[in-house]
């Protein structure tokens, strides 16, 4: 994912992700009735796990976007990585990766980060052309992201612009799972005075805490894999296969 531009805060704020935990199966049924686009309707009709489903029984898919920038209104999606998983295995054979042509301009800063160049983007299809495949690949699954302030709102905005309707779905946010541990209470006065900083909950730093290997991030597919591995590690250390999915998703 892309959020490390010089103007961006150290850790992005979650306020703009307005969707909140709710009875997702019921919400999907409603949305299926309202959806006009057939691809979107099919997505909702495929349904989603009920909140009490144990994690072990939930099909998951890690998703990561590279974007032209951090600003939801002025930036667009450049690439999409998807890696399906469950608690036992991450399946690369079914992983997907698309480069798409954003309607926003590719800034030099973002090219430095994700390495996708103007010429690659120029030849890439518009998101509309891959939307059917994308939605088919994530339907019926719970999406896993690191920092829910990116993928879900960016996809929502992109769809509004293209097909005139947005998208809603639950996500498990591995960064938020880290925040629960490391942001649960602020550092005390003395520790701040001693110069301690709160533990970083960025993807790379979070992985280190679980002894996951170093990956070169900022490729959507690698980042999706990195996020999938992080979730497996978080569950192995802190939850259990029986934990209801509702404890994790947002």
């Amino acid at each position: 994912m892309f959020y490390l531009g010089p103007e961006s805060p150290d850790e992005p704020d979650l306020a703009r992700d307005e969707q909140v935990a709710r009875d997702w199966p019921a919400r999907y049924r409603t949305l299926a009735e309202q959806a006009l686009d057939p691809r979107l309707r099919a997505f909702y009709l495929a349904g989603v796990a009920s909140p009490e489903t144990p994690l072990a029984a939930v099909p998951l898919v890690a998703m990561d976007f590279e974007t032209t920038g951090f600003d939801l209104q002025r930036s667009g999606i450049v690439s999409i990585g998807l890696v399906p998983l469950n608690l036992d295995r991450i399946r690369l054979a079914d992983a997907r990766h698309w480069i798409v042509r954003p309607r926003a301009r590719l800034t030099p800063e973002s090219v430095v980060v994700h390495g996708i160049t103007h010429s690659e983007v120029a030849q890439a299809p518009d998101l509309t052309r891959v939307l059917g495949e994308l939605l088919a690949a994530i339907q019926g699954k719970v999406v896993v992201v690191h920092h829910r302030g990116i993928e879900r709102p960016f996809l929502d905005v992109a769809l509004r612009r293209r097909i005139g309707e947005g998208i809603e779905f639950p996500v498990i946010d591995t960064m938020e799972l880290e925040a629960r541990l490391h942001r649960a209470k602020p550092l005390g006065f003395w520790r701040r005075l001693l110069g301690q900083r709160p533990a970083s909950i960025r993807l790379a730093d979070s992985r280190i805490r679980y002894h996951l290997p170093h990956y070169s991030l900022h490729h959507a597919l690698t980042d999706a894999l990195a996020t999938a591995e992080l979730l497996q590690a978080q569950v192995a250390h802190r939850f259990s296969p029986e934990t209801p999915v509702a404890e994790l998703w947002k």
């Binding site: 054979a93 591995e229 590690a233």
Partner: peptide, 14 residues
């Protein structure tokens, strides 16, 4: 080969 791989995480002592 990479595209065929599956991945799994095991914590220590598993």
């Amino acid at each position: 080969v990479a595209s065929q791989m599956e991945v799994a995480y095991f914590k220590a002592g598993t």
